Simulated scan of single mutants.
Amino acid sequence: MPETTHQHLHNFQEANKDKGRLLICCPDQPGIVGAVSNFLFQNGANIMESSQYTTDAYEGTFFLRIEFDCPGLQGKEEEMKSKFRAVAENFNMKWDIKFVYELRRTAIFVSKQLHCLRELLWEWHSGELVTDIALVVSNHEDARELVESFGIPFHHIPANKDIRKEAEAKQLELLEEYNVDQIVLARYMQILTPDFVAAYPSRIINIHHSFLPAFVGANPYGRAYERGVKLIGATSHYVTNDLDEGPIIEQDIMRVDHRDHAEDMKKIGRKVERSVLARGVKWDLEDRILVHKNKTIVFN
């Protein structure tokens, strides 16, 4: 790991050693915010940021994200969680307390297109993407020099539909060895099996162009040019067993017109893809996303 990146992460941990995030999903009813606020007050915590959302009255689901500061938080993680269980049970909550100084360990999967990988590595190197990139896995060798220049382990594991199970077995073994918390598919052009997805539920983030499902398969930009599309975009989402249909995290678009040829569209598309993926990963790392059924609540 480059010294500057190591220092960024160390400084972040030191600056956030007393900070936590409380994430809640539960049936809506009066008193939730009061009970949570009182719990934090009773445990010496000060609320720094709070966001909430309630679905329509028919469904009535309440979502809450609170970022708090609590002196001496390090060392009493389990105590805080234990004490909060009584509050959670009273309101039938799905909940989690995240401790900001605990850096998440990320694995990046990539194939031959490196634009999204480059964006993630640059934001990580500059301190904008706060995570410990544990390793990069690829079914090609193209990214090795780039990845190793950042001091990150690179692992080449050939993969295709004929050897998918064998490849995933090696990948899962590596992910366990490196104690990985989440996976980012930075244009990894392989379909994941249900067993692989089940090992990291709502912890695999993917990026795809917005032509799906209109231009599925090879050469989407060429076919989009022939069709005369006027918007190019990208979608970052969590991976599920329904291909490219998982809960959406972030989307963006850029306009094109008849003067933009297929290669121009490809360049524009790559620009959108890398920014949309980076934003999605950043919000996930900041615990700003709550997954509910097949959609997300994003407190950005």
Rank of each mutant, 00 (worst) to 15 (best):
T5Y: 08
H6P: 02
Q7P: 06
Q7C: 10
Q7S: 11
N11T: 15
Q13E: 09
E14F: 12
A15T: 14
K17W: 07
K17M: 10
D18L: 09
G31V: 06
V33D: 05
G34V: 11
G34A: 14
N38F: 10
F41V: 15
Q42F: 12
N46R: 10
M48P: 10
M48H: 14
M48R: 15
S51W: 07
Q52Y: 06
T55V: 08
T55I: 07
T55K: 06
A57Q: 13
E59W: 10
F62P: 01
F63V: 07
F63D: 02
R65K: 15
E67D: 14
E67H: 12
D69Q: 13
P71H: 05
L73N: 01
K81C: 15
F84D: 02
A86H: 13
A86G: 10
V87E: 03
V87Y: 03
M93V: 11
K94N: 14
D96F: 11
K98V: 12
F99A: 02
V100N: 02
E102R: 13
L103F: 08
L103N: 02
R104K: 15
T106H: 03
A107C: 07
K112L: 06
Q113C: 08
L114D: 06
L117W: 06
R118H: 13
L120R: 00
E123L: 12
S126T: 12
E128A: 10
L129Q: 00
L129V: 05
T131C: 15
V137D: 00
V137W: 00
L146Y: 03
V147N: 00
E148S: 04
S149N: 03
G151M: 07
I152R: 08
I152A: 04
P153H: 12
H156I: 05
I157T: 10
I157K: 08
D162W: 08
D162L: 12
I163V: 14
E168K: 04
K170N: 05
K170M: 04
L174E: 02
E177Y: 11
Y178H: 11
V180A: 00
I183S: 00
I183T: 02
L185H: 02
L185S: 00
A186V: 05
M189T: 07
M189P: 03
Q190W: 05
Q190A: 07
I191V: 14
I191A: 12
V197H: 00
A198R: 08
A198N: 08
S202T: 11
S202K: 13
H208P: 00
F211T: 03
V216Y: 11
G217C: 03
G217K: 04
A218M: 13
G222V: 05
Y225R: 10
G228T: 04
G233R: 05
S236T: 15
D244H: 03
E245P: 05
I248W: 05
I248M: 05
Q251I: 11
V256W: 02
H258D: 07
D260G: 06
D260A: 09
D260H: 15
H261Y: 13
E263V: 15
E263H: 15
E263C: 11
E273H: 06
S275C: 07
V276F: 01
A278R: 04
R279L: 10
D284N: 15
L285M: 06
E286S: 09
I289Q: 00
I289M: 02
I289H: 00
V291E: 01
V291Y: 01
T296I: 09
I297S: 01
V298Q: 01
F299L: 05
N300C: 12
